[in-house]
């Protein structure tokens, strides 16, 4: 399943990093603590968070994450968005809370 597939299935907004929509997804990781993600999120994961600053993209790139989903209609700051386009790592958005979107993504990825 690709980032594009989950964006369509879950009705996610696409804020940036469109060139990375074909990235394959290995799972998800939900956290707002950067060192937690740094220490535990594996490559290809979708990171669900309310953090909207540029350092999110640095971590996503270093950890080779597939995409970011911002919850509760949080919007990416401009430098986060710029970095998303440079790294080709999509920043997506939802009006759902982290619990809800995590559950939906979990179900979607474990359907087969």
């Amino acid at each position: 399943m690709t980032v594009s597939d989950i964006a369509v299935s879950l009705g996610l907004k696409i804020y940036g990093g469109e060139n990375g929509l074909s990235r394959e997804i290995s799972g998800g990781y939900t956290s707002d603590l950067l060192s937690d993600v740094m220490g535990h999120a594996g490559a290809g994961k979708v990171w669900i968070t309310l953090q909207t600053h540029k350092n999110i993209m640095a971590i996503a790139s270093l950890k080779e994450l597939a995409a970011i989903i911002l919850v509760k209609e949080y919007l990416p700051e401009k430098d986060m968005l710029d970095q998303s386009n440079i790294e080709d790592i999509p920043v997506l958005g939802t009006s759902d809370e982290a619990f809800e979107i995590s559950g939906k993504l979990f179900n979607l990825l474990n359907r087969r």
């Binding site: 603590l33 060192s35 937690d36 968070t49 953090q51």
Partner: peptide, 16 residues
């Protein structure tokens, strides 16, 4: 507030 400073950094360094 930025999500840093959770007290996990040094432990991540040690593990890695």
């Amino acid at each position: 507030e930025m999500g840093f400073g959770a007290g996990m950094g040094l432990s991540n360094m040690k593990t890695n």
